[in-house]
Design a protein around this nucleic acid. Structure first.
Length: 652
RNA sequence: GCCCAUGUGGCUUAGUGGUAGAGCACACCCUUGGUAAGGGUGAGAUCGUGAGUUCGAUUCUCACCAUGGGCUCCA
């Protein structure tokens, strides 16, 4: 009889008399490996398979062990089962539903007659530990769907019954640990004691199958890792995220404010507005370089325009309308229709294209009340929005230019980790395949030409065109969608936009919707969290705070203030009669990049002493030199203070 | 929008069926001090809004408003 051959990653081959399970292959390699085996990837597939799975002849496998990052998924799968078991041991009347693995952990949804309270979490956690300590073997069983339905019906687990019915397959897998069992596809660990580190995080409510008309369930969020240090690191990140929350920072640093009279409407204080304007000015500067013209378009439009653009039909739920004796109007939720009107106001030759309209117009979107969230989800917003009207032939160079523009901005801002997603044609779409081919090719070619790695999201494009989404990964590894570029064949059609080609005939231009920072409100929120509020000097509302030791240095300090102001540096003089330590503490908490400290020594030597946000000190600096250094830092929009590198010439 | 939780001086918060205490911030006074909080005094709150229960509500009930967490990720 022919042997079954299994291929390993190092290209070696193991032979078996009959189809082995993943675990048997591991055992064949070594006992220790077998002990830690939790599953495997088969034939480069993306999903981990259960170690109990039998392997066909010729399979190529990559074993996943308990201590690997890939193994987390299996640990979390089993931890979810342990949670469900613990809950049902504590409260037998609670019904289980589903418990999937998510990005940084897992959750389990329960149908309970009593909503969970925070103290319940502790109980569940304790009980889970007990289940784990029992060191239960996890066993996989194959049942016919019919038998499984009978079993779960008898147990009163109506959600499981519903799942099996909907699956509509002849047989299902059940996993048993001790006297508890659950319907599950797997994969799972060998035994419960392999869960070494877990933590229950929070409770929330959710609906069965995400449908608000169905049962409301209690969801318990938790996480599990292969080791205690890894879990600790994750918990630390969560803590850090809380500290960096832009709503908290925005309040502490006096940047933003919200009032119940305008939910989703951010107020920017004087300080916050400086950040906003600095970002806007930066984009404006680059617009000149990249050939954009900034335009201003109206806030309020006759609804007729939105019938024309299609927003009335497709976006009206998110729009604000106003009905007066002058007719029905709407606040613009997007700039594009206005830009189309502007474009159409004149006859254009192909020689003029591409035409790039940039617009910082304020937009209003009626986001659902439950989705509002600080600056990252607002109803009144501003984007670094622009629309490029161009020919199909110009697409590629425009996309290239956009990506170069974006890369430059992100790098300047110290946002070095981001991923580009290319979303291609959805099933329901507008325009011919020929046009889609060209558009998708243009996007792909531009990315390739610039050597930008990207991931394809097949079928995820807008109905009017394919798009690029730029996901920024912040300092705590959280992804945020900021920049975007969307091709649009629809609006040019609806607004009957045209240009005269070199054949003296009318042609349709293509529109590129694009933003680099995206929504400025949202961007500022994300950026505050990314930097933990330690803004680069060019963005800092107060760049220098002068601290005097005593009243006797006041005149000298006033002189410094004038010098800094004359150099366009944002300075504040803290002249309160307080101890130096007190003033320094406040300056540090306010995350002011430079604290200039002035005592008798400085006055006498006509120098300044500077304390950087990191705590480093530079004493006896020459004022003009310092201003020059600062100007180069601010003008160059540097992320790091050149002063930190500066060798100290004189010391006290 | 829906579910759950929360809402007490500017901020962070304690607390109670008999109308509230603290810390920070603020004002004034003392202190003029060299790298993350010096001391004292004082002012400041109809306890989110409205209604109900009660002799009496900030506290209990209901409604509303806002905020927070969650609502795609397939057993």
């Amino acid at each position: 009889m022919a042997k079954i051959k299994i291929h390993l990653p190092d290209n070696s081959i193991r032979e078996f008399d009959q189809e082995p399970t993943i675990l048997e292959v591991a055992l064949n390699i070594g006992a220790r490996l077998a002990k830690d085996t939790v599953g495997a990837f088969i034939n480069d597939e993306k999903e981990i398979q259960d170690f109990r799975q039998k392997l066909k002849d010729g399979s190529r496998i990559k074993i996943v062990t308990l201590n690997s990052i890939e193994g987390r998924e299996v640990i979390r799968h089993s931890a979810a089962h342990v949670m469900a078991q613990a809950v049902q041991e504590l409260w037998p009347d609670i019904k289980v539903t589903i418990g999937p693995v998510i990005d940084n952990g897992f959750y389990y949804d329960f149908d309970t007659p009593r909503p969970f309270t925070p103290d319940v979490l502790e109980k569940i956690e304790k009980q889970m530990q007990e289940v784990i300590n029992r060191d239960l073997e996890i066993v996989r069983e194959e049942w016919t769907s019919e038998k499984a339905i009978a079993l779960f019906t008898k147990m009163g687990e109506k959600f499981k019954v519903e799942i099996i019915r909907d699956l509509n397959v002849p047989s299902v897998s059940l996993y048993r640990q001790g006297d508890w069992l659950d319907l599950c596809r797997g994969p799972h660990l060998q035994k419960t004691s392999q869960i070494k580190a877990f933590k229950i995080l929070s409770i929330a409510s959710a609906y069965w199958r995400g449908d608000e008309k169905r049962e409301s369930l209690q969801r318990v969020y938790a996480t599990a890792f292969e080791s205690k240090p890894e879990l600790e690191r994750h918990l630390h990140n969560l803590e850090e995220a809380k500290k960096r929350d832009h709503r908290k920072l925005g309040k502490e640093l006096g940047l933003i404010f919200f009032h119940p009279f305008s939910p989703g409407g951010a107020f920017f204080t004087g300080k916050g507005t400086i950040i906003f304007n600095q970002l806007q000015n930066y984009m404006r500067e680059l617009y000149k370089e990249y050939g954009y013209q900034e335009v201003i378009t109206p806030q309020l439009f006759d609804v007729e325009m939105y019938h024309c653009s299609g927003h009335y039909d497709n976006y009206r739920d998110n729009m604000y309308f106003t009905e007066t004796d002058k007719g029905q109007h709407s606040f613009k939720p997007m700039n594009c229709p206005g830009h189309c009107l502007l474009y159409a106001s004149d006859l254009h030759s192909y020689r003029e294209l591409p035409i790039r309209f940039a617009d910082f117009g304020r937009l209003h979107r009626a986001e659902r009340s439950g989705t509002l969230h600080g600056l990252t989800r607002v109803r009144s917003l501003t984007q670094d929005d622009a629309h490029i009207f161009c020919t199909m032939l110009q697409l590629q160079s425009e996309i290239k230019s956009f990506m170069q523009f974006l890369t430059r901005v992100y790098e300047t801002l110290g946002m070095n980790k981001y991923t580009v997603y290319l979303s291609t044609r959805p099933p329901k779409r507008l325009g011919s395949d020929d046009v889609w081919d060209k558009a998708e090719d243009a996007l792909t070619e531009a990315l390739k030409a610039l050597n930008i790695p990207y991931t394809v999201n097949p079928g995820d494009g807008a109905f009017y065109g394919p798009k690029l989404d730029i996901m920024f990964t912040d300092a705590l590894d959280r992804p945020w969608q900021l920049g975007t570029l969307q091709l649009d064949f629809n609006l040019p059609e609806r607004f009957e936009l045209k240009y005269i080609g070199d054949d003296n005939k009318e042609h349709r231009p293509v529109i590129l919707h694009r933003a680099i920072l995206g929504t400025l409100e949202r961007f500022i929120g994300v950026f505050l969290e990314h930097t933990a509020g330690k803004l680069p000097t060019w963005l800092a509302p107060i760049q220098i705070q002068i601290l005097n030791l005593t009243d006797r240095q006041k005149d000298y300090c006033e002189m410094l203030v004038k010098s800094f102001r004359a150099n366009n540096i944002r300075v504040h003089f803290d002249d309160r009669v307080e101890k130096l330590g007190f003033k320094i503490r406040e300056g540090q908490l306010q995350k002011i990049p430079y604290l200039v400290i002035v005592g008798e020594k400085e006055v006498e030597t006509k120098t300044i002493s500077v304390r950087l946000l990191g705590g480093e000190q530079k004493n006896a600096l020459d004022l003009n030199q310092f201003i020059n250094t600062l100007n180069s830092e601010i003008g160059g929009r540097l992320n790091k203070s050149p002063l930190a590198e500066l060798k100290q010439e004189v010391s006290h």
